[in-house]
Amino acid sequence: MRYIEPHAHMVSRVTDDYQDMVTSGCQAVCEPAFWAGFDRSSAEGFRDYFAQLTEHEPKRAAKFGLPHFCWLCINPKESEDVKLAEEVLALIPRFLERPSVLGIGEIGLNKNSRNELKVLERHVDLAARCDQLILVHTPHLEDKFKGTRLTLDALRGDRRIRPERCIIDHVEEHTVRMVLDAGFWAGMTLYPETKCTPARAIDILDRYGQERLWLNSACDWGVSVPLSVPRTALEMRRRGYSAERIDQIVYQNPRAFLSQCPKFHLAS
């Protein structure tokens, strides 16, 4: 089996996870910028984080023969402070030129506040000006439906944004349709308790087909499973999916989306 892990926060994981992922057939890992579990005290904390994502983590992954790519932004949980967000946004352009940066992400909303929306729009503007791909985080639990709607409105409100260059992540049964109908890509995150389980993600594939959909573990410092994509591939086999169809979903789909950035390339 071969697969791409399109959303994993490897700075929070141990080297055993790298080893397990590569052993399971992982061909590339992509790491969106996210919340550290605590608020950073200044923009300088983000400068260091962006250096970690673009310099240190690719080297750590390379020790296991795994190509590592990343996305940059200030995450929605720290976007209530617009002044801090503006300072961080000003840092991003110089990092965008680095060889493993795929685009702007994971941006989006958390509690669906006005300031979060303002900062989301600034990121969308930056992505449009710099011709970057976009990866969007949608909110948790009761906030997801509303936040997905507001996010789609914000993206559609900017005429420069092409939906096929944006992935809206963490969709579930109540949000997947609006994302796909609007022409965006949709990501399904496989978590043990929240978001999608493997069985539910496959239900969504059964119902909506496999176009513009991908799977990810979004593994981080919380309860999450770095091998959830290959484990879901095993579940797909139990559900009668052919090897070709599984390959389409866990390898070819993410490769197709990510290859819209010329910097994304695989070892083979």
């Binding site: 979060e116 009761e142 906030d143 439906f145 509303k146 709607r149 507001l150």
Partner: peptide, 8 residues
Amino acid sequence: SDPTTEPI
């Protein structure tokens, strides 16, 4: 889910 449409 929160069914409202306006940002808080």
